[in-house]
Amino acid sequence: MSENASSPGLRPNDLLTFVMAVACGLAVANIYYAQPLLDTLAGDFGINRGTAGVIITMTQLGYAAGLMLLVPLGDLLERRRLITVISSVAVLSLVGMAVAPTSSLFILAALITGVTAVVAQILVPFAAHMANDAERGRVVGRVMTGLLLGILLARVVSGSISDLFGWRAVYWIAAVIMLVQVVALRHLLPEESPQSPMRYAGLLRSVATLVREEPVLRRRIVYGALGFASFSAFWTTLPFLLAQAPYHYPDAVIGLFGLLGVAGALCANLAGSLHDRGYSRVGTGLFQAAMGLSFVLMAVFPENLVAIIVGIIVLDLGVQGNMILNQGAIYQIRPEARSRITTAYMTFYFLGGAAGSAGAAYLFEFAGWIGACSLGIVLGASGVLFWLREGASHDCS
């Protein structure tokens, strides 16, 4: 079945589109609930901040594993059943996080939660596949909006709930919400089983083949991994900065900083316009530079709240703009393999995020905020240097 054709009788109505958008947001939110809670978790479990940062690293590694191993199953199995089974496992892993008596068990449950969060990356192509050509952009845009809102609001919600009821309540509530989601998706999603001529092992091998054969994909993987490593390095260590002097902010206030990510969402149209007008290369360089410069600003003025806020906005603009340009480039190659291209790109994207989280957490433990910002500066500079080197190539997509 062609990716560019919708299945007869399976067009998503407004209700189904809304439900899929909410489901995407809730699934991906499970990865981000812990970020504003890291200082609290470190205190409760009696671990240092470097070890607490591993929580974020493990959810991202889990997500990368899910992208690599589970998302391709959407081309082989009945998607409604696949989505509800994975979501049911998410319920159990969230309960595990809520009741975990030790940091080791909490981190293990966080890893499984990260794996199950890839439901979002199965729902997005499912929605695109059901929509006809005339409405595909609108449908995918709505579902992606839900995913983005899940990322933005997760930190705000978890910080507020933690201050009111304790951090374990965050995961109990998340588990109940996911259980409701399982029931809703089971009843509302249509039965639809894409027919792929490949077996599972063949699909996985074809992902590696795409990376090997497509230079544009390889280059954009580098930009994506560096960008998300910067993003994760910052958001993993920001709670540590804001929990100590001179801020001493509670979890709820730390979570509110996630709302500044709205700036990144607003950048999507600008980045898309740059791509459509043929300025993708110029935009890539600017966004890479913005990420590095944001860390310079925050490293120089760590006790200035305005500088931190401006730094967050500039960083999010760079990360989101970089992401849009990367997607615009990779989706121009091999339209028949877009799902597998997504798997390749997003797997390395989250591996970069996991490395950024782990590296920044341990640098913060040994060198404080300056150490974490130094990593962000190095990542941004590496992106700019790669961009300059790429300029020698005739194909700079």
Score class of each variant (00 low, 15 high):
residue 7 S to Q: 11
residue 37 L to M: 10
residue 19 V to A: 13
residue 63 Y to L: 10
residue 38 L to Y: 10
residue 29 A to V: 09
residue 36 P to M: 06
residue 53 G to K: 01
residue 23 A to W: 05
residue 10 L to E: 12
residue 32 Y to D: 09
residue 49 R to S: 14
residue 50 G to N: 06
residue 16 L to D: 03
residue 64 A to K: 00
residue 38 L to I: 11
residue 34 A to N: 13
residue 16 L to K: 05
residue 22 V to R: 04
residue 50 G to A: 06
residue 34 A to D: 08
residue 18 F to S: 15
residue 63 Y to P: 00
residue 34 A to L: 09
residue 24 C to R: 03
residue 40 T to Y: 10
residue 32 Y to R: 09
residue 25 G to S: 01
residue 49 R to C: 10
residue 6 S to V: 11
residue 31 I to H: 02
residue 50 G to Y: 04
residue 58 M to P: 04
residue 37 L to Q: 06
residue 41 L to A: 01
residue 31 I to F: 05
residue 19 V to K: 06
residue 49 R to G: 13
residue 9 G to K: 02
residue 20 M to G: 01
residue 22 V to H: 03
residue 8 P to E: 14
residue 41 L to G: 00
residue 18 F to N: 08
residue 23 A to F: 07
residue 45 F to E: 03
residue 13 N to P: 06
residue 27 A to P: 11
residue 48 N to D: 15
residue 41 L to S: 00
residue 10 L to Q: 14
residue 36 P to Q: 06
residue 18 F to P: 03
residue 63 Y to N: 08
residue 27 A to L: 11
residue 19 V to E: 06
residue 42 A to Y: 01
residue 33 Y to N: 11
residue 48 N to E: 15
residue 60 Q to T: 12
residue 10 L to T: 14
residue 43 G to W: 07
residue 44 D to A: 12
residue 53 G to L: 02
residue 11 R to N: 13
residue 24 C to K: 04
residue 40 T to F: 09
residue 24 C to A: 12
residue 26 L to M: 13
residue 51 T to V: 15
residue 24 C to D: 05
residue 57 T to S: 12
residue 18 F to M: 14
residue 49 R to D: 14
residue 27 A to D: 10
